[in-house]
Design a protein around this nucleic acid. Structure first.
Length: 589
RNA sequence: GGGGCCGUAGCUCAAUUGGUUAGAGCGCCGGACUGUCGAUCCGGAGGUUGCGGGUUCAAGUCCCGUCGGCCUCGCCA
């Protein structure tokens, strides 16, 4: 080893010891006769002191040190004078009196300093990711990621699970997300697909008798990115055989509990709360609501249908809904202009408008208040439980639109009004998703979760008469408004599987083409089984208190899915393309 | 595919209704300094205002296009 200690571990107990440290020059303060260097590694900072009496060669070298130079220093640990302790530093009671200094590597002047107070723009951070990763925040995040992975492995190992790898080069199954394709050299015109998830393989492992499987698996989806979505991401993938829904939920309850105790040292109350999909959507306008605050949606159809406001009345008459909620004590906080902004916001979700009222002296104050008689006003106030100073919002539209618009508005206002402590941790199950939802554009039923999802026994008859009523044996784990895990009990009966395929418009022939290996496997003694997958990146983000997934991934991609560090994706040689039997057909420039 | 925000010195930002030589802090370079820890003090260098076009007597500022980054709707079985 080139060093005897790290830059984070020396303290008063080491005084008098001769030590050798290695690291990066975080900061230097040159006083000519004395030079201070804050030496940094991922464990911390240690102040090195170079004084004249230590010798002129070292002194000259020390005075030439600049930000991010990599050095090796040997010297004695000495106590700092009592009034010179630095309480901001874990090692602030001591310093190392540098006697020999070795410049291991001179750094170019960095485009930004990892200790800087102004965070440079993300483009630059991604281009020089190795500098960005030197920042304490990102180092903490990656350490958190490691801890979660370790807790995961410890937990499942203790429960008798096996970690089993599944292929990265698989078969394209065009359902679901767009695949990343990998051309085959030896099979001209054929392609592998990178896995969107190990779904089919893990089910086959169940058939094969590996009744407790997990894997920390990389997944790939060629879809547009978001703050919480990357084209390649990591799932904690789990599958169990001979289990019912309850077994999966309690297994994952235990995992989350181990996360919370391992990361935060807190005890999580189990079992985690559960609510139905129907309740989530009705009360909060989302299947992944943030339950760190209330602000529940309230249906005011009874008042709307008979009021004098045409927009409300017409909505009800044409099969729509009128719902709203109370933004507590927000009447003064939101100006007319602010509310115009909120109106634009809900339009993104299909709403045609946003009705609002301020509650003043027991009455409603709004440009549209005149359409509401005294009785209607009092009825609205009573129905919503509103108080003076509150701001009421309503959306009148088709049911789906009221849900999407109000759900999004609720989330936004909860944050803006600081209705919760950002350090709160809310985690609960959403159960009983519909098996399918109607896709009006394509005129067919789409699987809500995926085509292998099982259903309540008593709902099976509805597969024929009313598919919208069929409840899936699926479950999402929702944490602070993020979908943090999602899974289901799978179909293990090929006949039921075929009925579901029929329903979502996958013909027998098509199913054979796409999934024959799974369907075949199910015919050779498939145990009842089910599973779940947790988004590791999102969990790290949640525990790190961040709001974007890039900060918990060492080398993330930009919104256009490029890697600014490496330049990927990039062009390849013609020879490579020829080997792969590929011709490109690019749009004319 | 759609909507929005952004791009000025190495970095973070400023620059009046379009108006003279595009500024500041940090960083960088040189100098001073033996107790600093966001060191301090003195001096200096550093700009194709992302790129291309247009309007104008005059463009960092207005318009069109384009590239890049971020947020978002659609999309994400």
């Amino acid at each position: 080893m080139l060093r005897t200690h790290t830059c984070g571990e020396l303290g008063s107990t080491h005084v008098g010891a001769s030590v050798t440290l290695c690291g990066w020059v975080d900061e230097y303060r040159d006083h000519a006769g004395i030079v201070f260097v804050d030496l940094r590694d991922r464990y911390g900072l240690t102040q090195i002191k170079f004084a004249l009496s230590d010798g002129s060669e070292t002194q000259t070298l020390a005075r030439g040190l600049r930000h991010e130079d990599v050095i090796r220093v040997t010297g004695e640990v000495v106590s700092r004078p009592a009034d010179m302790h630095n309480s901001k530093l874990a090692t602030g009671a001591i310093e190392v009196r540098g006697s020999t200094l070795e410049l291991l590597n001179k750094s170019k002047t960095p485009p930004f300093q990892p200790n800087g107070r102004d965070l440079p723009n993300e483009e630059l951070r991604l281009t020089y990711r190795y500098l960005d990763l030197r920042r304490a925040e990102l180092q903490r995040n990656l350490e958190m990621r490691h801890k979660l992975a370790k807790l995961t492995r410890d937990y499942f190992d203790a429960q008798g699970f096996l970690e089993i790898e599944t292929p990265m080069l698989g078969k394209s199954t065009p359902e679901g997300a767009r695949d990343y394709l990998v051309p085959s050299r030896v099979h001209p015109g054929h392609f592998y697909a990178l896995p969107q998830s190990p779904q089919i393989y893990k089910q086959i492992l169940m058939v094969a008798g590996y009744d407790r499987y997990y894997q920390i698996a990389r997944c790939f989806r060629d879809e547009d990115l978001r703050a919480d979505r990357q084209p390649e991401f990591t799932q904690i993938d789990v599958e169990m055989a001979f289990v019912e829904r309850e077994d999966i939920l309690s297994t994952i309850d235990g995992l989350i509990s181990s996360f919370v105790s391992g990361i935060r040292g807190q005890c999580l109350k189990l079992p985690l709360q559960r609510i139905s999909y129907a309740e989530a959507v009705e009360k909060y306008g989302s299947d992944k609501p943030d339950l760190r605050f209330g602000m529940e949606l309230i249906d005011v159809a009874e008042i709307a249908k008979s009021c004098g406001f045409g927009v409300f009345k017409t909505a009800i008459e044409s099969g729509g809904r009128v719902r709203g909620f109370v933004a507590p004590q927000a009447a003064e906080r939101y100006s007319r202009k602010d509310i115009d902004g909120l109106t634009d916001f809900v339009k993104d979700y299909g709403a045609k408008g946003l009705a609002f009222f301020r509650v003043k002296e027991g009455k409603l104050d709004s440009p549209i208040a005149k359409f509401f008689g005294d009785a209607d006003q009092q009825a609205l106030i009573a129905k919503l439980g509103a108080k003076d100073g509150d701001l009421l919002f309503f959306v009148a539209d088709q049911p789906k639109v009221t849900t999407a618009a109000l759900g999004a508005l609720r989330t936004r206002l909860g944050k803006e009004l600081k209705l919760y402590d950002p350090n709160d941790f809310s985690c609960f199950w959403v159960l009983d998703f519909p098996l399918v939802t109607w896709n009006a554009e394509e005129n067919r039923w789409d699987a809500e979760h995926h085509p292998f999802c099982s259903v309540y026994d008593e709902d099976v008859p509805h597969l024929k008469d009313d598919p919208s009523k069929v409840r899936a044996l699926s479950y999402d784990l929702v944490c602070n408004g993020y979908e943090a895990a999602s899974g289901s009990i799978r179909i293990h009966d090929p006949k039921i599987q075929q009925r579901v395929f029929d329903l979502i418009g996958i013909s027998e022939e098509e199913a054979e083409n796409r999934f024959s290996f799974l369907l075949d496997a199910l015919r050779y003694g498939a145990p009842p089984h089910g599973g779940i997958a947790l988004g590791l990146d999102r969990w790290v983000m949640l525990f790190a208190g961040g709001d974007n997934i890039r900060d918990v991934i060492a080398f993330p991609k930009t919104q256009k899915a490029s890697d600014l560090l490496s330049g990927a994706p990039g062009p390849v040689d013609m020879k490579q393309l020829r080997d792969l039997h590929i011709k490109t057909d690019l749009p004319a420039v």
